[in-house]
Amino acid sequence: MLYDLNIAWSPTTSPDELLRTLRFSASLGYDVVALNHTISPPIPPQISNPIPEFPSSPSSPPLPTILRRATLLFSDPTQQHRIPQLASTYDLLALRPQTEKAFQAACLNIQEASLISLDLSARLPFYFRPKPCMAAVHRGVRFEICYAAVLSPAADARARATFIGNVAQLVRATRGRGLVLSSEARGVLGLRAPADVVNLVHVWGVPRERAVEGLGAAARGVVVNEGMRRTGFRGVIDVVGVAGRGGEGRRKRKNGGEDGENEGGAGANSIVTAAGVEGEQQQPPLSKRQAKKLKAALRKKHVSGDDEQKQA
């Protein structure tokens, strides 16, 4: 499974271009992509998710599974009380810290965001120190490297140099761990095939196997974690569907499971609790031996209950 957790989206993006990008990313072999909406600091009072949804139908051309993600430009760590609401409206939430304090807070404190996405092609006002970076990686927060910014013909030599320098710093601080590679493509020409991406970041100093991980396992970890956080209860139980009456409950549960799979396997490794209780009464999957045992137990109960009544 290959992931591309950042395809830029804004209200002005033309749907044709977006669809083209998605179809091309499917043909390059990406399985899950996330459309990214960048939000500047004052979070609007009414949080809504403007990213369009793409219903999958068998007749339409194949598209990857599409997640919806928000990136918050984050400069003031004191204003974080609305982040949970923002996180609940989107499938993924990333932070783009603008100052050193914000970076520290994003690394150490903020629970809702699982990605730190920095604009590496501009000079950052802080250094990556190993301690907060490694703390973030141990907490499960991943750092994102977006490569489309350097690939576009508009990028000048200075921006490229800054980008490579920043990547080298980031690799030094995290020792290559906890990196996620994504495109942040604004058009179809910003996308590259997975092998090309791995080679590119290898040239920039990321170890090869870490780069492969950044396209697959690390990105999957983020998606699955976020999925569990939104649908599950404390990461232990995942409700994938509610039991209805009889066979209906079963069918629902099945569908729910498949949906979970589509959302990046959120339902795959979770405990299913919503097994139709009423459904089991209608068609008992018991063997004869078990049925006999049950009957015997019931009889015993009756007898003992009668005894108790007599004693009373």
Partner: peptide, 24 residues
């Protein structure tokens, strides 16, 4: 060479079409 190929955005002729080089 490979990373140079990833950076090429159009066919290197006059008025080349936009394209992507994919090392397979």
């Amino acid at each position: 060479v490979w990373s140079a190929l990833s950076f090429i955005n159009s066919i290197p002729v006059k008025n080349g079409k936009p394209c992507i080089f994919r090392v397979v």
